[in-house]
Design a protein around this nucleic acid. Sequence first.
DNA 1: AGGATAGGATTTTTT
DNA 2: ATCCTATCCT
Length: 686
Amino acid sequence: MNADNLAGDINASLNPEQRTAAECIEGPVMLVAGAGTGKTKTLIHRCATMIKSGISPINILMVTFTNKAATEMRERLREMVGDSASHITAGTFHSVVYREMLSRYPDSSYLAEQGIDMANVGIMSDADSRKLLKESFEELGLPAKAYCDEHSIGLSDLDSQMGWARSRGYSLAEYRYQRVSGNEEVNPDFALVVEELWELYSQKCRAAGGIDFDDVLVVCAHMLEREPTIADSLGQRFRYLMLDEYQDTNPVQMRIMDAIARQHRNLFVVGDEKQSIYAFRGSDIQVIIGFLGRYQDAQIINMIRNYRSAPPVIECANAIAAAMNQRVPNSDGQLLAEAKIEPTPVSYYEFGNDLREASFIAGGIAKRLKAGVTGKNIAVLYRSRPIKQELERQLIAQGIPYLLEGDTAFFQRAEVRDTVALLRFVFQPWDNMAALRVLGSVSLGVSVNKVNAGLGQDSTVYEFLQAESDKRLKTTKAGIAPRTAAAKKVRAFLDVVDRTRECYEHFDDAEVLVKFVAEIWRIFFLPRVESAAKRATASQAQESVDLRKQNVGFVLEQFQEALGRGLTAEQAIEDLVLMAQASPDMDEEQDGKVRLMTMHASKGLEYDYLYVMGADSESLSAKEAEHFNDIEENRRLFYVAVTRAKRELCVTWSCQRLQHGQTLSTEQSPFVAEVLQHTGAGVVRG
DNA sequence: AGGATAGGATTTTTT
DNA sequence: ATCCTATCCT
Ligand SMILES: Nc1ncnc2c1ncn2[C@@H]1O[C@H](COP(=O)(O)OP(=O)(O)OP(=O)(O)O)[C@@H](O)[C@H]1O
Ligand SMILES: [Mg+2]
């Protein structure tokens, strides 16, 4: 079949390299190119080309870095090919692996061996796993504790080691093996403590009926490698694999994709090694750098034409790229400016303190808005969230509407987590984590400590509560004694929980179901919220109760909406846990709001007017110079940040700023210095 | 059950 | 400096 005839018109807006990539659909292909060269655009066109040429969308798997990116892909694809776009599988590694891989092969012998029964296991939220990890840490044996004290090792050190090992695909057994077999990379005493923690933690996860985010991927990788028939069956379903942001893939994710592509080898990856910025979370730049080694017949397509940014921005980006040391071979990493945008020089501003810096930026934004620029076309990027504090104050003071992109505060709120826990408890009574959280937030006369003390192995909190609800008063009279007060309360609670679940099992009415859950919350959770609010001042109190009610209502609305889309209750809960759901301010009018986000969160996005703030030597450099990669990664982060700009770019920093209540003296970031030297640009002192 | 208080953390993420 | 949490106390 000739792709040109069928797809020629849809790819008319592509340049020759992009077209080659979009129309080369068999075999391994890597599209590796700098920022703004149209990688993501090409990916979407390639998908559209395949569908137009007769490939069934159900055979296409597209993996993106965030849920939001997946939604946007599907949306843009729909514009090109219509409703068949909704039949492709698009999502993050975690959601795709959990839903389409682990859940689809519950009879896998590997899963059975690992004691994972997909019918009674749920994906655990980050907060849940952190809680279990902390408990495990406290239960470490005395020698381990002594070792930690002596070497001032904290939970975070052990956690990041565990995270690193699992991002590399190690199971506990394999991690232990590499210590026993004398791998020198990790201190064996340290590794021993990690193993002990890991063991305790896995037991707790199993007892809680939870599988954590890391394990979703590790377990899947092992399952596919141990049972190639499963990998091949997935390969038959997903005949075409596509991955965006390949530079931030970790080795387990790589193994999963390689396993599925084993037979057909139709693997299309897209990325830019100069934008690899998630190593702290296990991503490995070597995955993209080593692609050609793993697929020696792969077609490699490079692109250097940037269609996003004005020439001065490109000059700045090129200067940063020129200083990089970890590069894909056969390219100098330099971009050519193709966008027809009137050039405005990049400006670099140094301020005496963070206050002046913030008010300069707020003032600049106000000017642009006045000139008619829409808020959503302006963004401010920073390395870490505290950097933006002063700016937020200024924006509020000046009445400039803004939006924190990538903010998850909503899902961290107590009442939101309570509501999710309640949903989990209602529809997955075996979920002990959820049950315990519910128990801690309602007043049933049964404390969490009591349950923990009385809970036997292999029994659920639900069963424990059932037993509690049948406790009788001691009585000398014959006949059945009445229930204790606590037992009555527990009984009442379980009754309504059971009735709700039965309603779900027997009727298909999401609205009634959600009304039931809302009612449970009102009866059992609200009183505690109200009494807590009483202690605050009267006006604040009512506001906070109302806000909480609203938030609970919002979560339930999302849940109902997910059920309405045909998802099961379990899947709708997964959506909430994976935070694939919207947060409440998403249905407000957003276009007028200026965007504030971390540099990490800005990956893949673009804005007409861009401020990169806090570009100082403390935030944006390598503090621990012994880690060569940290320098490289921070430089890449700066590269990602500046390459978001379309028209104008302004880089700012201040010589003094407040950190943890103390004044911190800083100077310009070394990466800024590199750019200034390379481009000959000057600094304005504001 | 709920309040007070001491102690700890305080990049980057949302999967 | 400030916020959060765990723990102890009432
Ligand atoms: N051939 C082209 N002609 C005109 N505009 C293009 C072309 N290719 C891409 N663009 C535009 O350039 C911009 C950047 O494209 P895209 O986001 O796909 O780049 P990218 O390589 O994925 O960038 P990043 O590395 O930042 O993710 C978009 O606005 C896109 O519409
Ligand atoms: Mg992109």
